[in-house]
Nucleic acid binder design. Structure first.
Length: 296
DNA sequence: CCTTGAACCTGGGCGC
DNA sequence: TGCGCCCAGGTTCAAG
């Protein structure tokens, strides 16, 4: 679930606790998530100081002293939480999961920081998330990052760039915007929301937003603005909290209350003066929510 | 190159 | 209460 705004929110929530702290020990409670952890993962990161947290697309990066970087992807149901103080159990005690939630605590980072000891716990019921190790100086060539497109924040994403990506494409806009090689970080929710804001139908071929010379047509300008705005609004709201996802401090993001179309099938379109009804269709195996009346 | 569909995994919600 | 089915924020792979 976590799309770009949720990962950004997680990063901001974890940074005050993690940056500058000593990562005393990484505790792996199982050998894999979606993929096996690297062989040397726990040993390589334990005893290292944490320099900084950052984000690229939907990936969280934890830079360590010495040049190693932990790369974490939250998949569909991953979340981090912080617990203050040392681990409550005696060293060597067998772990006995109590609640159904605790049994999905797969990774525990034991920290020693300025504010004392703390644990940062990664929980992921569906285990679609994954972690890897990379070197900072070659991270751009890492398979996760090599083909990623532009971030939808800042100025790199503009209509000229999208025009080059969309030119000649018959692929539906929905699929084109989900392609991480074009825009890095958009997911199902924010693509639906951005298309609604731009009054564009999700099934419309991406190439129809490009003119004969390969330049952006007017709707493409609107789409760029819509993407930037929805991402900025969602980050400002602390992301969306659906089902599994919560912020690192345990509080809930509240952007889901601002959804205009996502998960609103059968409800009234919120576009002023539209009067349409939100519909749900399936594209490439995933739900798309949109208003057939005002999205063309 | 394109597209769709299945796979990965668990849990929540709903109809019966 | 329970069973079976569908659905879920993502990514990757195989197949047509």
């Amino acid at each position: 679930m976590p799309e770009l705004p949720e990962v950004e929110t997680v990063k901001r929530g974890l940074a005050p606790t993690m940056e500058g702290a000593l990562l005393v020990r990484a505790e792996l409670r199982r050998p894999d998530l979606r993929f096996p952890f690297p062989e040397n993962f726990a040993a390589a990161v334990s005893g290292r100081r944490i320099l900084a947290l950052s984000r690229r697309a939907k990936y969280l990066m934890i830079d360590l002293e010495g040049g190693d970087v932990i790369i974490a992807h939250l998949g569909m149901s991953g979340s981090f939480r912080i617990e203050a103080g040392a681990a409550p159990k005696a060293p060597g005690a067998v772990h006995h999961p109590r609640g159904k939630d605790e049994k999905h605590d797969h990774v525990v980072f034991h920290l020693d920081g300025e504010a004392g000891s703390a644990r940062v716990i990664y929980n992921d019921p569906r285990r679609f998330g994954f972690m890897d190790l990379a070197r900072r100086d070659t991270i751009a060539e890492h398979a996760f990052f090599r083909e990623l497109g532009e971030e939808p924040t800042g100025n790199a994403l503009d209509s000229a760039y999208l025009a080059t990506r969309f030119a000649g494409k018959v692929q539906p806009l929905k699929a084109a915007l989900l392609d991480q090689r074009t825009i890095a970080g958009l997911g199902n929710i924010y693509v639906c929301e951005a298309l609604w804001r731009a009054h564009l139908a999700p099934a419309r071929p991406a190439g129809t937003l490009v003119d004969k010379r390969g330049g952006p047509r007017k709707p493409l300008f609107l789409l760029v603005e819509a993407i930037r705005a929805v991402i900025a609004d969602a980050i400002a709201a602390g992301g969306s909290s659906l089902k599994d996802h919560i912020r690192a401090d345990g509080s809930l993001g509240y952007f889901q209350h601002a959804f205009s179309v996502y998960d609103r099938e059968g409800e009234a379109c919120r576009m002023p003066g539209c009067g349409g009804t939100v519909a749900r269709i399936v594209q490439a195996g995933r739900s798309t929510f949109y208003c057939p009346r005002c999205q063309k």
